Amino acid sequence: MKPFDLGELFLLAAIWGASFLFMRLGAHEFGPVAMAALRVGGASLMLLPLLAMRQGLQELRREWRALLLIGLLNSAIPFALFSFAALSITAGFSSILNATTPLWGGLIAWLWLGQRLTPLRSLGLALGFAGVVYLAWDKAGFKPGADHAAEIRAVWAVLACLGATFCYGLAANFSKRYTAHIAPLTVATGSQCYAALLLVLPALWMWPAEPPGAQAWASVTALALLCSALAYILYFRLMQRIGPTNTIAVTFLIPVFAVLWGYLFLGEVFTGQMAAGCGLVLIGTALALGLVQRR
């Protein structure tokens, strides 16, 4: 990998790691659905002119059915679920659970597309999900003197993150099967535009009664322009230049940056249990992706 490509990979990880910080900063004031709607709506406004300059609007209309489903599974539902989780758990914890996306992708590919699972990949799936169980177990421990209501909220947040990553896994396999012929920028733009259409009415219905403050607006703007629009451009550029196997390394870097941003700006603590669970998830992900081979 060239130094420039490696730099872009780290930049992408830093941006996507920051998305968990911005959700923590804005979700309490906007609410999960309104925040997700603004995120995809803002990203659409930035991506649509780029697609128009590349003469891609006709493809956006022609492939609307596939792109609508991608928008639902890859943006609308997961963005709302991660914003919901941000109400109860830290940015670092959410990012570790986000790293299970390739695990769901591998499991769904096996069940749906008949992709063969080697013993090492099966071990990776088992280790990865064991890491999730280990992380979530402490949240549902109901220790003496603990705030049981907070623990229950945390468990729901964990389930929301897993629901989001399951949607990502579905979207990845659907894209592989049905959207390989569509230009990457069209897929990126379409996923945001159609997600915005899906979320506009729920967002208006759930719009916050109190006007959100400047910090919340700044957070949702950063989510839309930086963590969605710009990140997608970087992601698809890397896919074209260094290939999917190298690009997927971003999965391992996102929790590092999310934990760092949470520590620096929110004072979040990275516990030993989180480190152990994160290690299990990332080792399992590496095995499940076939990045570790038996010699």
Rank of each mutant, 00 (worst) to 15 (best):
R24T: 05
A34V: 14
P32E: 04
L45R: 04
M35W: 02
H28L: 12
P32G: 11
F30M: 11
L21K: 02
R24I: 02
W16K: 13
L38V: 06
M46E: 01
V40R: 12
A43M: 08
F30I: 05
G31C: 09
L25N: 02
H28E: 14
L45Q: 07
H28G: 14
S44M: 10
L47K: 04
L25I: 08
G26M: 08
A36P: 09
R39L: 05
L38I: 03
P32A: 14
A37V: 02
S44W: 14
M35E: 15
L25E: 12
V33I: 15
P32F: 11
S19E: 02
G42T: 03
V33M: 15
L45K: 00
V40F: 13
A18Q: 03
M35N: 09
F30C: 09
H28K: 12
S44E: 04
V33K: 15
M23C: 09
H28S: 14
G41S: 11
A27Q: 11
G42Y: 07
I15A: 14
F20N: 06
F22R: 12
A27T: 06
P32Y: 11
G31N: 08
H28D: 15
E29F: 05
L38R: 14
G42F: 01
L47M: 05
S19W: 04
G26K: 01
W16M: 13
G42C: 11
M23Q: 14
W16Y: 08
G26H: 02
A43Y: 05
F30S: 03
P32K: 13
M46Y: 11
L25S: 04
I15H: 12
M35K: 11
A37E: 05
H28M: 11
G42R: 09
F22Q: 06
I15M: 10
A27Y: 01
L21D: 03
P32R: 13
G17K: 13
L25V: 07
E29C: 14
F30H: 01
R24Y: 03
W16T: 07
V40K: 15
G26C: 06
A34C: 12
A37G: 11
M23P: 10
R39G: 03
S44F: 15
E29Q: 15
G26E: 06
M23K: 06
L21Y: 08
G42P: 04
P32I: 09
L45V: 12
G41A: 07
E29I: 01
A36H: 10
M46N: 00
L21A: 00
L47E: 00
A27R: 13
F22D: 02
G17E: 03
S19H: 06
G42V: 02
M46I: 15
L47Q: 00
A34R: 15
R39Q: 09
L45P: 00
V40S: 07
S19G: 08
G17N: 10
M35A: 14
A43H: 06
G26A: 10
G31P: 13
G41I: 03
A18D: 12
V33E: 11
G17W: 03
